[in-house]
Simulated assay, not measured.
Amino acid sequence: MVTPTQLIRIGVLGTHSTGKTTLLRRIEMELRGHGITVARTGRLGKRAAAAGLPKMQHHTALSTEWIITEGIVDEIDAVAQGAEVVLIDRAAHDAIAYWHAALAFRAETPPCQERERLLALASTQLPKYDLLFATMLDENVPVDTSHDYDAGFRRLVDQHAHRLLANDNIPHQRVTSDPDSQAHAVEIAVQLCLKEALV
């Protein structure tokens, strides 16, 4: 059994149906195979909708704030339950990217003060991530047709997510739809956790 010497947080962000959840599931399975206690957060968009908040191209400042803060609560709960590694499905800047994309989709301009406040809130989480993955949109990969996705909005989210990362010089690893890229990301995550266990 391997136990990391400190709590490890690994986050992922990117537009929908680009493999975020699948990637974290693979990392989770590998880590559990090494005897590491893992918790994975997620389903924030669905839970926001269940709470009566708008999502996707209808995303607002309010739903953005809810998703960021609820994600923080989920992470804290995972730590309190004894997780050694927390896998964060939709790192805080993900919600910002979706909001910016929704505003662009609706041809609206974000109120400057609101934008700065929410960006500051998301930025408080950055120092906690030991590793951050950003999935890349590949429009040649078919998506689940049971979801009513707007291709233009999906593209906007991808653009805004990577623009946020670039503009703020946020360290991250890009993950494409290529199986080798996915496998490499899993390997990076597992090796990080195993390295911490040996320190």
Rank of each mutant, 00 (worst) to 15 (best):
I8Y: 09
G11M: 10
L13S: 06
G14I: 02
T15S: 08
H16G: 05
H16M: 03
T18M: 14
T21I: 11
R26V: 01
E28L: 09
E28G: 11
R32I: 10
R32V: 14
V38Q: 09
V38H: 11
A39R: 15
A39I: 01
G42T: 00
G42S: 03
G45P: 13
R47Y: 14
R47G: 10
A51L: 07
G52M: 03
P54Q: 09
Q57K: 01
S63T: 13
T64N: 15
E70F: 10
G71F: 14
G71W: 15
I72T: 11
E75N: 04
E75K: 07
I76P: 08
D77N: 10
D77P: 01
G82C: 10
V85F: 08
I88V: 13
R90H: 12
A91L: 06
A92P: 14
A95H: 07
A107E: 06
E114F: 06
L118Y: 04
L118I: 00
L118T: 01
L119N: 13
S123Y: 04
S123H: 11
L126A: 01
L132Q: 05
L132D: 02
M136D: 09
D138R: 07
N140G: 12
D144L: 07
D148W: 06
D150K: 06
G152K: 03
R154M: 08
R154E: 03
L156M: 08
L165D: 01
N167Y: 09
N169Q: 15
V175F: 14
T176A: 15
H184R: 11
E187G: 00
I188L: 15
V190A: 09
Q191E: 06
C193Q: 01
L198V: 00
V199Q: 08
